[in-house]
């Protein structure tokens, strides 16, 4: 395999692992997934900052 092809394979595997496996299964956005509205997110963070 030429170095160019090898690099393309690495790039594609890496993007799949990062964006499909890691992001999908391990890195949900904490505030986006728990709350529907920005007001609720603000309230939650305010609670964290003031307690």
């Amino acid at each position: 395999m030429t170095v160019g092809k090898k690099l393309w394979v690495i790039i594609l595997i890496k993007l799949f692992v990062f964006f499909v496996i890691m992001k999908w299964f391990f890195f949900p956005d904490f505030l986006q997934t728990r709350f529907d509205k920005d007001e609720e997110r603000s309230e939650y963070v305010l609670e964290q900052l003031t307690q």
């Binding site: 904490f30 986006q32 963070v45 900052l49």
Partner: peptide, 14 residues
């Protein structure tokens, strides 16, 4: 950036 959203949400919001 993934970590900001998941592990550091209070910071990211702030």
């Amino acid at each position: 950036e993934f970590e900001f959203g998941t592990n550091w949400s209070s910071y990211s919001w702030f």
